[in-house]
């Protein structure tokens, strides 16, 4: 045991809280044996802690548990009422979006090749794709309305998924 060991309030609280390592604990215990004034202080701290430990818990208003259960039952009912979207639809959405985003890019790149823009550094062969096809995009009603239909459908589908998620998480 070191002779120069000095106890302070913080260390004493840590001792009372059981937060000291075994060596420090032994040092404090030995110090307390020799210094009765500190022992009295420790007893006061322990008493204080007991008072905290014995504080009664606050009680919520009557019927709290019933209200929680009512909210939970309602949430479960809402979840059951919403049919889960089939997995294949969820998987299809990013694929379709990827195709829709990649198509014009590939088209532009293909157009660039046809206009003899040097792209010799590319390590792969680009598919031949005329940029004229995009110039005539508006002229073909079937293509135009087809793409428009797909976009509207996907937007509505994503919006529906978003609403479902919000409902499921109760953020109405």
């Amino acid at each position: 045991m070191e002779n120069n060991f000095l106890l302070n309030d913080e260390l004493l609280w840590d001792y009372a809280d059981g937060l000291l390592d075994p060596v420090q604990r032994q040092q404090v215990a030995a110090y307390l044996e020799q210094n009765k004034a500190w022992k009295v202080k420790l007893d006061a701290i322990v008493l204080e802690q007991q008072r905290f430990g014995n504080l009664p818990l606050e009680k919520p208003n009557a019927g709290f548990a019933d209200r929680v259960m009512a909210a939970w039952t309602l949430e479960q009912r809402v979840q059951k009422a919403i049919p889960a979207a089939p997995d294949w639809i969820l998987r299809l959405i990013p694929v379709v979006f990827a195709v829709l985003i990649l198509m014009p890019l590939l088209g532009l790149l293909g157009g660039g090749v046809q206009q003899n823009i040097p792209l010799s550094n590319l390590p792969f062969e680009l598919p031949a794709f005329s940029i004229d096809a995009f110039h005539n995009f508006g002229a073909s009603p079937v293509l135009f309305y087809g793409v428009l239909f797909v976009l509207v459908f996907l937007t509505l589908r994503i919006f529906e998924q978003f609403l479902q998620l919000r409902l499921q998480h109760g953020k109405r």
Partner: peptide, 9 residues
């Protein structure tokens, strides 16, 4: 809920 309502509250 009943077991933990006071603690949580």
């Amino acid at each position: 809920v009943k077991r933990y309502e006071n603690y949580v509250f």
